[in-house]
Amino acid sequence: MSQQTTPLGKQQQYYRKKYLRNLPTAFCTGCGNGSILGCFVRAVDALVVGKQLQQRDLLCVSGIGCSAWIPSPYFKGDTLHTTHGRAIAFATGAKIMNPKLEVVVFTGDGDGAAIGGNHLIHAARRNIPLKVILVNNQVYGMTGGQSAPTTPFGVHSSTYQSNPEPPFDLSRLALGAGASYVARWTTYHIDDIITSMQEALLHPGFVFIEIISQCPTYAARFFNEYRDSLSPKERKQFHRNPGAWMLKALKGKRTGKNLGHPRYELTLKDQTIELGVFIREERSTLTETLQSLWK
């Protein structure tokens, strides 16, 4: 049994009642997925209250992996929990058949970039108005900490003593494939995620938001990048509450501004990761083009 935390405030009760199903959470203590669901609910609420979005038009599609459980079954709205890697393809069918639906895809680095990488790049190229939120925790969490295509080079996972592969830069991949809105944040940057999600929900085109997140269960156990710089005393504290310590490592340094959003820079292991909004462009979308064939 997990420990009971502080009682919910009024605002939290409001969000929970309006947007969440009353089900026990399956996420580990300190997991980033809860924060991401919290951000999403706040972004949606702002638009619903502002009458820019109808809750019943929302459809959350997800694949397989921890990230898939962010909307399904917690989010109160239509959810489609699909096969591994294929969420974007399922979402494509639903969005085209009913363009009125506001389709949001929750996926992970394994789901969206390994097994489902092909669907990701093609959806970006088509500029189909799907809002893809990819949670990158740099590891396969649900299956027990195996290396992912996003695991930093040289770190220890449950499959490699030292990961022999360099990681994917997913935001650049989406950018190159033609996504018309691309942003990357970490779970530390809650406010930026919320404003970025609001922007994304209103953006008329394909959206890719990568959120680098912490996996306190596996990434913390295997990844030395979070521990290398810590003193022995700090390490003890780290193991008591790895989620919080990993969040600190995801803070990064502010480097400037772009497209109305702050930019940050983050160093993980030997990797330098840029955060911010990288592109926001309006282009014709696949749903519009398909309907233009009707005449």
Binding site: V61, A89, F90, T92, G93, A94, I96, M97, H119
Partner: peptide
């Protein structure tokens, strides 16, 4: 679609969309 896996997925999505 980009392959048959996606084709099958898309028609499931479309069917649930009515």
């Amino acid at each position: 679609m980009e392959d048959e896996i996606a084709s099958m997925a898309a028609i499931i999505g479309a069917s649930w969309a009515g």
